[in-house]
């Protein structure tokens, strides 16, 4: 199973995402922003970082990278895409996911281990979790506050498209404690927390994040 990870100028967590895919048992394929070649991968991860220095708005310039034109077309046809942190911001700027991510409520850059509840286990990226499962995964961002119109929020809630929710305390002012969402079809998932940083006890607070990567491999096998 070939899973791609895109490197943009300013990506930070691309090598961690590649490593998480390998640890889950997949073939990790590096992809480059300046090429529109998806190299026959079966799913793609947009990693965390500060692509284009977060200039203009987080993800606003990456959205127009050549690789994104291929990803947007593929995603609209059901191709699985996971955006993590900056990757989530790129997905909202691309309009593959609704809403936007703005400056954290208290303006702090927050870096901590975050308890979360997994609410949607019907996506190819979360199918290995059980609904309502509590996991601990790091967050590390300055602009992670999820905002959407009242209509978009009620659509997300009514259609069960909230994938992850902050448990206990809301760290950043995100509406409805939203930490991750999916599109109507369920193939595109964006999360602010970093599952690729919680894949083994030596380097992370838990191994809870690895399930994102084992889930996609199982989902692809089942197709």
């Amino acid at each position: 199973m070939r899973i791609g990870v895109v490197t943009f100028p300013g990506s930070l967590d691309d090598s961690s995402a590649l490593r998480a895919i390998r640890l889950a048992g997949g073939e990790a394929v590096p992809l480059f922003h300046a090429s529109d070649d998806l190299k026959e991968v079966q799913a793609v991860v947009l990693p965390g970082g500060f692509s284009y220095g977060d200039y203009l708005r987080c993800g606003a310039i990456s959205r127009f990278a050549p690789i994104m034109s291929s990803i947007i077309v593929a995603a609209e046809h059901g191709f699985p895409v996971l955006g993590i942190c900056n990757g989530f911001q790129i997905l909202t700027e691309s309009h593959l996911l609704p809403g936007a991510l703005i400056r954290n409520q208290d303006l702090h850059f927050i870096c901590k281990d975050q308890p979360l509840t997994v609410e949607n286990v019907n996506t190819p990226w979360t199918s290995g979790y059980t609904k309502g499962e509590r996991i601990v995964v790091p967050i590390k961002n300055g602009e992670g506050s999820f905002q959407a119109s009242a209509q978009t929020l009620s659509e997300l809630e009514d259609e069960g498209r909230v994938v992850l929710r902050y448990a206990d305390v809301n760290p950043n002012g995100s509406q409805n404690n939203i930490a991750g969402i999916t599109n109507a079809r369920g193939n595109v998932v964006g999360v602010m927390p970093h599952p690729e940083q919680a894949i083994e006890s030596l380097t992370g607070p838990s191994e809870d994040g690895l399930t994102f990567f084992t889930s996609i491999l199982h989902s692809l096998v089942g197709r």
């Binding site: 310039i61 909202t92 700027e93 936007a100 959407a148 119109s149």
Partner: peptide
């Protein structure tokens, strides 16, 4: 398209 994000 670029300078603003019409969502916010």
């Amino acid at each position: 398209k670029l300078l603003s994000n019409p969502v916010i």
